[in-house]
Design a protein around this nucleic acid. Structure first.
Length: 793
DNA sequence: GAGCACTGC
């Protein structure tokens, strides 16, 4: 196998590429065993980590997290070090470096707003005080300092867990805290570790463990009481992911049940403190009252009114709990952040076209305000980003020579990493950077150098419609907290300005906080998560949701789980349900896996490959230009299968796997996303391991390679079992109508079956834009659909 | 003949 070519990111602004040292990279590639190390994402990580001696200077968020997200696994420094030659000397050297780092960092730590609160924070969790709610504004240092304050407390005998919504944040926080403690992340002696999907660095001495929310939930599957931890710190709660809501519910039960000695810290940037306090007080109160009284009645009393209103829990709770005997077990802590003033202006009249308004505002700022000071524009999606970019570039051509130049930089998730990285490069001389971003810049990526923010006031958001059972993406007004978050991006390094492309009146009318995800998504996976961690079906109604989803959406999710067999006929959580919960997949995709493992189907290896493809974003690149479109069609022809998109995916992953020399070049040739394919390979590996562990797959089973007629039929029937309700039949007029609900649905133009007429189809995705579309489509026999529908109901 | 924000196991 010839080594892949190492691509050093090159760009016009002349960034020093010296952070990519060839020996290290080759070493990592050897250790990883395949092509991963040559991915540009890895280089980004290196760059940040080598900057450890000058922390908080760039790209560092509140947490010290690098701003750019990377999905690629990182190898542990400790392991790499052990395998390198002359390790003793290097180890000593490392020790000196560690001490130097530690000393340099201590100076910076002492300047953090949180530093003077150490005693108070320790006291807040001493004795019988179990819960602390902490509001720490951006830049307060809470994520890095609080675990270090607490780890030496007498009650802290075991590990401290601290959860993060994103992988990069967990990894870079761990690295930062290890540096502050003078340790080497990944070395056996290190007291700091992390755990994220596909990548773990935990040693025998780990005392502080950063992990993603999903990972903590995964650990609860083994033991819901989390006996390995003395404390759990839940960070970034204001983002209100489904997982964080579930974790808070479990932790409330845990603390109030007192089954385990457990301290809980809830941290947030803009928390609704009253709502959270009330939430945990209710838990403690409920437990006390339920001693000897009617448990059910108490539970209904304490949370029955929490309806699906979009606001926080605050609105429902009034005077009866304000003075509470349990409040001494809960403390609150407010830490000021480090934020410069941001002057905010509004438009006087509501605007029709925010792209045009943004264009005007950009040039108004550019011509009036001196350098330095880059502009960050918040837009809704790729399309608005690209059209504004065209406009700005067009107008920038007409600027006179005395005015600084403009460099426009797009920023959205679908953009290749190498292009995302450009927002971190220093602007060329006499040039102002204008970053055109989606919501990715609100939470995931912190762009340095921003003094001006332009906020269109809109966001693209997913909504789940219960009655139709489908999700759609809609452009919606942002919430007030989101507007404040965007505004704050202008004041990270110096006083800044924020231009809101909406009126002050519209701002006042915005929803206070963003509707939590749990109120607008399909709940089947969340319910599966809850039940697999020991909550019986009938107790779901009393699960402590911070915001309770509507009965209707709960019922819909239960119906879905019943159809998939996660609940048996007597509505108890079944063995199938337990198995589905162990798979890192949606319940429907999981069900397809379980079906494929049945002896009469016997196509698990093949199905795992297909499911791995379905659980990443599109593996085929979108083509924009006409000539490329033809080239892409030609190149992909060998991969297409007439049976439909699922077998096409299987053919693609197989061709990719068989490519031994240069998979990146293969991907480029076939207009396939190399990044997505690397992800597919990781997921396939994880799914195979999980299936082996669950005794569904033989350890020595070969990778999916069969494509005979019987296997093909078996695969499609497995897909049908998971997607029984995503089926449609051909009507005499040539349209397709769903078997359940009799709705018209069209095959999406990106499907290989587009324009074809087959008697019936099964599809893995249903999207609603201008009309209803089926995406991920395969042709099936009508009789099969009849069978599966009869069987499932 | 379409047009998809962002995470995570």
């Amino acid at each position: 196998m010839s080594p892949p070519i190492l691509k050093v990111p090159s760009n016009a602004s002349g960034t020093n590429p010296s952070h990519v040292s060839m020996p290290t990279t080759s070493k990592k590639r050897l250790l990883n065993g395949h092509l991963k190390a040559s991915s540009p994402d890895y280089e980004v990580q290196q760059k940040h980590h080598n900057d450890a001696l000058k922390p908080l200077q760039n790209n560092s968020d509140d947490n010290g997290a690098p701003g750019l997200s990377s999905r690629r696994p990182v190898l542990h420094e400790g392991l790499a070090q052990k395998l390198s030659a002359g390790k003793n000397e290097q180890g000593r050297h490392k020790g000196v470096v560690n001490e130097q780092k530690k000393a340099a960092l201590l100076k910076l730590r002492k300047e953090l707003p949180i530093w003077n609160h150490e005693r108070l924070i320790r006291q807040s969790l001493s004795g019988n005080k179990d819960i602390m709610l902490m509001v720490g504004e951006t830049g307060s240092g809470k994520s890095t300092q609080v675990p270090q304050f607490l780890m030496t407390e007498p009650w802290c005998k075991r590990c401290i867990a601290i959860t993060q919504p994103r992988r990069v944040a967990a990894i870079s926080l761990a690295r930062r805290v290890a540096d502050e403690m003078g340790m080497t992340l990944g070395a056996p002696a290190c007291q700091v570790g992390y755990s994220v999907r596909f990548d773990t660095s935990i040693g025998p001495n780990t005392r502080i463990k950063f992990l993603t929310e999903g990972m903590l939930l995964q650990e609860m599957l083994r033991d819901p009481t989390l006996p390995q931890y003395s404390a759990v710190i839940v960070d970034e709660v204001h983002e209100r992911s489904v997982n964080v809501d579930l974790i808070l519910g479990f932790l409330r039960n845990l603390v109030s049940s007192k089954r385990a000695a457990m301290k809980v810290v809830v941290m947030s940037a803009t928390a609704d403190v009253e709502g959270l306090t009330k939430f945990f007080q209710d838990g403690l109160r409920e437990k006390t009252i339920s001693n000897g009284t009617d448990r059910k009645a108490t539970k209904v009393h304490s949370q029955g009114t929490s309806s699906s209103s979009t606001g926080s829990a605050k609105a429902h709770h009034t005077k009866d709990y304000t003075v509470d005997a349990f409040s001494d077990r809960i403390s609150t802590c407010l830490i000021k952040g480090r934020q410069f003033d941001v002057k905010t202006t509004y438009v006087h009249e509501p605007t029709q076209d925010f792209v045009e308004e943004a264009l005007k505002t950009i040039f108004r700022i550019h011509c009036k305000e001196p350098l330095p000071g880059d502009i960050l524009v918040f837009l809704t999606g790729q399309e608005t980003v690209e059209s504004l970019q065209r406009l700005v570039n067009e107008y920038a051509g007409g600027l006179d020579e005395k005015t600084p130049k403009i460099l426009t930089l797009p920023l959205f998730a679908a953009l290749p990493q190498i292009a995302q990285q450009r927002v971190f490069d220093k602007a060329p001389h006499f040039t102002r950077k204008v970053i055109l971003a989606t919501n990715i810049a609100e939470t995931s990526i912190t762009v340095p150098g921003i003094r001006y923010v332009i906020d269109c006031g809109k966001v693209k958001m997913k909504h789940f419609r219960n009655n139709l059972g489908l999700e759609s993406l809609l452009v919606k007004p942002i919430s007030m907290s989101s507007a404040i978050q965007r505004q704050g991006r202008a004041g990270r390094e110096a006083p800044g300005q924020c231009f809101r492309l909406y009126t002050e009146r519209s701002f006042q009318e915005l929803q206070k906080v963003t509707t939590p995800e749990i109120l607008r998504c399909d709940l089947s996976q969340a319910l599966l998560t809850i039940m697999a961690r020991g909550v019986p079906v009938q107790d779901i109604i009393t699960f402590p949701f911070l915001d309770r989803p509507s009965d209707e959406s709960l019922k819909q999710a239960l119906t879905q789980l019943l159809q998939l067999g996660a609940l048996n006929e007597s509505a108890h959580f079944s063995h199938t349900g337990k198995q589905l919960a162990r798979l890192p997949l949606s319940p429907t995709l999981g069900r397809v896996i379980l079906e494929a493992a049945k002896p009469e189907r016997d196509c698990l290896s093949e199905i795992i490959d297909i499911i791995a493809c379905l659980s990443v974003e599109n593996i085929f690149l979108n083509i924009h230009t006409e000539e490329k479109k033809e080239a892409a069609e030609e190149a992909r022809r060998s991969l297409f299968r007439r049976e439909g998109d699922h077998l096409t995916l299987l053919a693609t992953i197989r061709a990719y796997s068989e490519e031994q020399s240069d998979r990146r070049a293969w991907s480029d040739r076939h207009f396939v996303s190399h990044r997505a394919m690397q992800n597919v390979i990781d997921i396939r590996k994880q799914l195979r391991a999980q299936c082996v562990q669950m005794k569904l797959l033989d350890r020595n089973a070969t990778e999916g390679s069969r494509m005979d007629e019987d296997t093909k039929a078996a695969m499609l029937q497995c897909l049908l079992r998971g997607f029984a309700t995503n089926t449609a039949r051909l009507m005499p007029d040539g349209s397709y109508k769903t078997m359940v609900g009799n709705q018209v649905v069209a095959i999406h133009p990106t499907s290989v079956l587009f324009g074809r007429k087959v008697e019936a189809i099964v599809f893995s995705e249903f999207v609603f834009t201008n009309r209803s579309y089926a995406r991920g489509v395969s042709a099936v026999q009508l009789s099969w659909v009849g069978d599966v529908l009869a069987g499932a109901t």
